[in-house]
Design a protein around this nucleic acid. Structure first.
Lengths: 141, 141
DNA sequence: ATCGCTATTGATAATCATTATCATTTGCGT
DNA sequence: ACGCAAATGATAATGATTATCAATAGCGAT
């Protein structure tokens, strides 16, 4: 729909990125996808499957630009490759199923508070944190 | 000292690993090093610097064997490569300084408890978890 | 709408950490 | 000391990601 496309263009302009086809395609894909977390490879394959022309190098570049622009968050789980998700501004942590690879999200204020408390104890200026619980999700049990 | 070497041999035998020179050298290095976390590359370079003969492939293999045997813990921080530390049996989490690359450890019972609570809420069978706070340590500030 | 210049793209090579291959060597029970 | 399976190490292979660079495409000025 047109409104949606316009807002995507504006998103790009707002962060100082030129509006190009690859960037539009990738942003649209991320917004339409029902999967929260996508790897660069996954984005590339999905676009190729849609018959969209795109290069793998461009996907990596654009995802990194989006991350720097605050449009995306990058996560590095223990799997060795990065996944990206749209940054909706709400911090959260992850439950990662080692059986199906699925990811659930959670947020707990008490844990956040404790983290800041610990950082303060260590005179540590905390910039970010990552908490990931690894295990088996209810579907896989 | 001899006692120390003997106990290293025993450690290897106890976990079912044949006592070989490379394994002895790596285990000795890990026990002597004042650095908690070492990458495979770092172990390799330190041994080469000591004039010890060893192959990089062997270092990777032995570290992985040690990990499986429970002698070591492997951590994957956001840096993209793995580091290992002797497993002294006490779980802990990490404060990682993005300025100097240094690592501090901490343990907080309240956070541990909350993690299990959250896993239970999601009907998630928790196997492991990783909590890392990223920021700037007091020395770098 | 066209021009021109710079940013962007994409095919491909390069890189980095790690793993696989395989001929040679070594630990260790006999 | 003997022999054989396990271990080693040089090197090739892999997988994810980044760098290179000529061709292309936005977009502001005309």
């Amino acid at each position: 729909m047109i409104d949606n496309k316009l807002s995507e263009k504006e998103q790009l302009r707002n962060v100082g990125l030129k509006v190009t086809h690859p960037r539009m395609r990738i942003l649209a894909l991320l917004e339409e996808s029902d999967q929260i977390h996508l790897s660069a490879e996954a984005v590339y394959r999905m676009l190729i499957d849609r018959e969209e022309e795109i290069g793998l190098a461009t996907v990596y570049r654009v995802l990194t630009q989006f991350e720097q622009a605050g449009i995306l968050k990058r996560h590095n789980f223990e799997t060795g490759h990065s996944v990206f998700e749209l940054d909706r501004g709400e911090h959260h942590d992850h439950l990662l199923c080692t059986s199906c690879g699925g990811v659930e999200e959670f947020y707990d204020d008490r844990i956040e508070t404790l983290q800041h408390e610990i950082a303060a104890q260590h005179q540590f200026e905390i910039a970010d944190h990552a908490l990931t619980l690894y295990g088996v999700c209810k579907n896989c049990l």
